[in-house]
Amino acid sequence: MGIIGWIILGLIAGAIAKAILPGRQGGGWIATLVLGVVGALIGGFIGGQLFNIGLENFFSIQTWLVAIAGSVLVLFIYGLVTRGSRR
């Protein structure tokens, strides 16, 4: 799957991650979607390395699960990091 596919997948995974992990993370929806793209890329890389999952197919359930898990993880870490900076 190409980089455009990962961007589209990441945008959707970021929206799903925001629905799974609601809260007041800083940055709003745009930051959440960008973090979703980052999370999908990181989740795809880690999933490929740890589980030897082939992530070439956009419509594969394992691709989506790994991308969503990566997005949730990145969004959770981002929420922890930015928690102290809010007033």
Results as ranks from 00 to 15, higher is better:
residue 59 F to R: 04
residue 67 A to M: 01
residue 58 F to G: 02
residue 45 F to P: 04
residue 21 L to F: 09
residue 27 G to R: 07
residue 37 V to L: 05
residue 45 F to H: 07
residue 51 F to A: 15
residue 62 Q to I: 10
residue 61 I to A: 15
residue 31 A to K: 11
residue 72 V to T: 02
residue 62 Q to W: 15
residue 38 V to E: 05
residue 42 I to A: 11
residue 21 L to S: 13
residue 36 G to I: 02
residue 33 L to Y: 09
residue 60 S to V: 05
residue 39 G to D: 05
residue 39 G to R: 03
residue 41 L to S: 10
residue 54 G to D: 15
residue 56 E to Q: 14
residue 67 A to T: 00
residue 23 G to F: 00
residue 67 A to W: 00
residue 39 G to S: 06
residue 37 V to T: 07
residue 53 I to E: 11
residue 37 V to R: 03
residue 58 F to T: 02
residue 27 G to A: 12
residue 64 W to N: 01
residue 59 F to E: 11
residue 29 W to M: 13
residue 63 T to D: 07
residue 36 G to L: 02
residue 65 L to K: 05
residue 73 L to K: 00
residue 65 L to D: 05
residue 73 L to A: 12
residue 72 V to C: 03
residue 34 V to P: 08
residue 21 L to Y: 08
residue 73 L to I: 07
residue 61 I to E: 13
residue 31 A to W: 10
residue 27 G to D: 09
residue 47 G to F: 00
residue 38 V to D: 06
residue 39 G to Y: 09
residue 57 N to T: 12
residue 26 G to N: 13
residue 68 I to W: 01
residue 48 G to F: 04
residue 42 I to F: 09
residue 66 V to Y: 06
residue 19 A to Y: 08
residue 46 I to C: 08
residue 35 L to E: 06
residue 73 L to F: 13
residue 38 V to Y: 05
residue 25 Q to F: 13
residue 23 G to R: 04
residue 65 L to P: 07
residue 68 I to K: 01
residue 50 L to M: 14
residue 29 W to H: 07
residue 71 S to H: 02
residue 61 I to K: 12
residue 73 L to M: 10
residue 20 I to A: 13
residue 26 G to H: 11
residue 54 G to R: 10
residue 37 V to I: 12
residue 34 V to N: 04
residue 49 Q to I: 15
residue 41 L to R: 05
residue 19 A to Q: 14
residue 28 G to T: 06
residue 27 G to W: 01
residue 55 L to E: 05
residue 21 L to H: 10
residue 51 F to R: 06
residue 58 F to Y: 12
residue 43 G to H: 00
residue 37 V to M: 07
residue 31 A to M: 14
residue 68 I to C: 04
residue 20 I to K: 08
residue 40 A to K: 02
residue 22 P to K: 03
residue 46 I to Q: 03
residue 58 F to E: 06
residue 38 V to I: 14
residue 69 A to G: 09
residue 67 A to N: 02
residue 53 I to D: 09
residue 40 A to G: 03
residue 70 G to E: 01
residue 58 F to L: 08
residue 71 S to I: 00
residue 62 Q to K: 12
residue 28 G to F: 01
residue 31 A to I: 13
residue 50 L to F: 11
residue 32 T to V: 12
residue 70 G to N: 03
residue 31 A to R: 12
residue 27 G to C: 10
residue 56 E to K: 13
residue 41 L to G: 11
residue 53 I to P: 07
residue 37 V to Y: 04
residue 55 L to F: 15
residue 47 G to Q: 01
residue 20 I to H: 06
residue 26 G to L: 14
